[in-house]
């Protein structure tokens, strides 16, 4: 694989993680507001919001390395009438701009709470549209390994799985920061952190469950369709990529499944915050590696119909 292909993997994983993190953070903020009021909820999530925007920016920067002719990059949005790639780039730019505007409003407390909430909702919907447009890019009639149910399911699972575990890590890191700066508020924040982490752990276990069911069905589907190209893609999961394919499943299972259960246990009992932090970091790292491997396989096992 060359830099160009790694650029695609980096972009697609980072962009999906950003969207997922934004959506999950929205839910977290909503729940935290109801539990402890808006000020504490903001303290929990504002710095995390900025981290999401930086992640998205890095992803979009990586996407440029995928191009052979970067100088012409502005023309990439012109064919939105028929090209999902154009649509994706446009929607991605809109998501980034809205994300930056919302983060700035939230950080500096600009505008009313209601107006910020409207912007947040619009950003969330555009984010979902971004992931949807990414799935449509690959739904080409000439690419049987991509043109099926697994592409939208796995893209959205990656979005939410990486998004929720990234939020877990970000909240743990944020808690350490808040605790150091302002020990007074640590108790409420600690309570909130444990509450949110429990739900993140539940989400991770459920999502990895979906993933571990869908991927074998997907491979079986490729074999069952019988087309030469689909069969060639399925065979590549065994040779030469059996190790990557196996590791991808095992790491996702350990990261989101096993660590997820421990994460839930640590988050249930007060006083285990340190271990909970380690679990959150471990789960995120393992799942990130697993998802990057999964995306690598997505591109590496692609075989088109005809004479490609």
């Amino acid at each position: 694989m060359e830099l160009r292909e790694w650029a695609l993997i980096a972009y697609s994983v980072l962009a999906q993680m950003s969207v997922g993190a934004f959506l999950i953070l929205g839910v977290v903020h909503f729940a935290a507001t109801r539990k402890a009021g808006m000020e504490e909820a903001d303290r929990l999530s504002d710095r995390v919001l900025v981290a999401i925007i930086i992640t998205l920016g890095l992803g979009m920067l990586a996407s440029l390395f995928h191009l052979g002719s970067v100088a012409n990059a502005p023309s990439a949005v012109t064919n939105f009438a028929t090209s999902w790639l154009s649509r994706e780039i446009l929607i991605g730019v809109v998501f980034a701009v809205l994300g930056i505007v919302f983060s700035a409003m939230q950080w500096f407390k600009l505008g009313s709470f209601a107006s910020r909430r409207v912007i947040a909702w619009i950003t969330a919907v555009v984010g979902i549209a971004l992931v949807y447009s990414m799935t449509q890019i690959y739904m080409l009639p000439t690419q049987p390994a991509w043109n099926n149910f697994a592409t939208p399911i796995t893209f959205f699972v990656t979005t939410l799985l990486l998004g929720s575990l990234a939020i877990g890590v970000a909240l743990v890191a944020n808690y350490a920061y808040v605790q150091k700066k302002n020990p007074d508020c640590a108790d409420v924040q600690c309570e909130l952190l444990r509450y949110v982490t429990r739900w993140i752990a539940v989400a991770a276990v459920v999502l990895v469950g979906i993933e571990l069911v869908v991927i074998p069905i997907y491979v079986a589907y490729l074999v069952a369709t019988g087309s030469a190209a689909a069969m060639a893609s399925a065979k590549m999961m065994v040779d030469p990529y059996s190790l990557v394919f196996t590791l991808r499943l095992v790491l996702a299972f350990i990261g989101a499944g096993v660590f997820g259960v421990f994460l839930y246990q640590n988050a249930t009992n007060p006083g285990q915050e340190k271990m909970m932090g380690y679990m959150a970091y471990g789960a995120f790292a393992l799942v990130l590696i697993a998802e990057v491997m999964g995306r690598f396989l997505f591109y590496a096992t692609q075989r088109g119909v005809g004479l490609m």
Binding site: R4, H66, L67, G68, S69, V70, N72, A73, S75, A76, T78, S83, L85, I137, L140, T142, Q143, Q302, G304, V305, G306, L307, M308
Partner: peptide, 28 residues
């Protein structure tokens, strides 16, 4: 070639293998 960004998306779409990437120019 004034517009091509060299993203190679056309390569995935064409079942005849017609669009091909020129490493030298970075374009299809």
């Amino acid at each position: 070639t004034d517009l091509c960004i060299g993203c190679r998306y056309c390569e995935w779409a064409c079942p005849y293998g017609a669009p091909q990437f020129n490493e030298g120019t970075g374009q299809m």
